[in-house]
Design a protein around this nucleic acid. Structure first.
Lengths: 204, 204
DNA sequence: CAAGATATCAAACGCCTGTTTGAAAGTAAA
DNA sequence: TTTACTTTCAAACAGGCGTTTGATATCTTG
């Protein structure tokens, strides 16, 4: 059994796939481009993963997102502070430009143009995320809320967060100097929390 | 000069193109599928519009969105009421499932995977929309606000609205009975307004 | 009607896609 | 070294893509 060369190209393929899928989405990505970046032969994808879809499935990974949720849940800060902290970490994950957390970008891509992998993403990552945020919203509101209202508050928070990622091409065109450095991301996260908390407190 | 047959296939192509572009995005749409739905020959697209891009450019139309803005601006209701009304009309336009306003769906598609037409969309539709919302936000807040804060409030409102469209495939998978009928859309719009207004009033 | 412009069509072109193939290279154990 | 197995590779495959072509209808105008 090999380990150095074989496992290396496998790992390199997965990493390159994350890059290319995040940039171009599943449809827009080509296995030739992935193999070029991984410095591997075109046939390598089908040899190691069976198909382009198999590679996508392997490239999807929600560890970072899950870790973020459990970190927030095990905190003993006030519900408001936990929501603030979650939004901050979530935005850092979403907008960090040169880090390795391309999973969120891939997920955002999947939303725009679903492939068969979306079912896996929904069950393993998005549904738990929504439930987690629903619990947090109820804690912050500290009132009896109907499920539909809780859900919509979750949508409002997530919608604000995802906007910066989904609309990035547009925002960049309208404001060419836009750049998501650490300070800017923190300001955005602070705004989203400041915008959302009054609404949650005002829930009737 | 012809008018019945010739103009007919031209118009049928534009209409079919709106359908297909809205469903699959520019990349995912094929001219063969468009021509099939328009009951036209494959060569018709290049004959009438020069290229697939030319057809996209022709299919883009922002009349409905512009009309919505001027209707809101010429109203003499209070700023809060005008914001409520705008959100309602905007959501009706975004989520209406079987109407002819596929322009917004096409625009949302463009955001996810920009084509050269995005520049036109930004300049002609999105930038004016953001400016319009910025003025409305300032009126509602009725306080001096920094430009960056105004902008972020606009993002918060638009983000909430667009979430329902962008994340529709996911929401449908998590809640299979989800259906955007008139009543549901009105409830969503009311929620977004109720969620956003306390935040705008609380602006410091 | 005849001439000429306009529109439609089947067929093909060149390119790119994901995938397959069969041979070559590399590795591990007997 | 021989044997068996895994991994890499260049090349090709079949199919879909946007676009072009040249012939054929269809219609307008003199």
């Amino acid at each position: 059994m090999m380990d150095t060369a074989g496992e290396n190209t496998r790992a390199r393929l997965v990493e390159a796939a994350r890059e290319v899928f995040a940039e171009h989405g599943f449809q827009g990505a080509t296995v030739r481009e992935i193999c070029r970046r991984a410095d591997a032969n075109v046939a390598a994808v089908n040899y190691h993963f069976g198909s382009k879809h198999g590679l996508l499935s392997e490239a999807l990974n929600f560890n970072r997102l899950k870790a973020l949720q459990s970190a927030t849940e095990s905190s003993d800060a006030s519900p408001e502070e936990r929501l603030r902290a979650f939004i901050m970490d979530f935005m850092l994950m979403l907008l960090d430009e040169d880090n390795a957390s391309r999973q969120c970008q891939m997920m955002a891509r999947e939303l725009a143009d679903p492939s068969p992998a979306l079912d896996k993403i929904v069950v393993e990552a998005i549904a738990p995320l929504h439930e987690f945020l629903g619990r947090l919203v109820k804690e912050v509101a500290a009132r009896k809320m109907m499920d539909a209202d809780v859900r919509r508050c979750v949508y409002s928070i997530l919608g604000q967060c995802l906007f910066y990622r989904n609309s990035h091409p547009v925002l960049q065109r309208m404001n060419p100097t836009l750049h998501y450095d650490r300070k800017e991301i923190e300001a955005i996260a602070r705004h989203i929390a400041d915008f959302s908390l009054p609404a949650l407190r005002a829930v009737k």
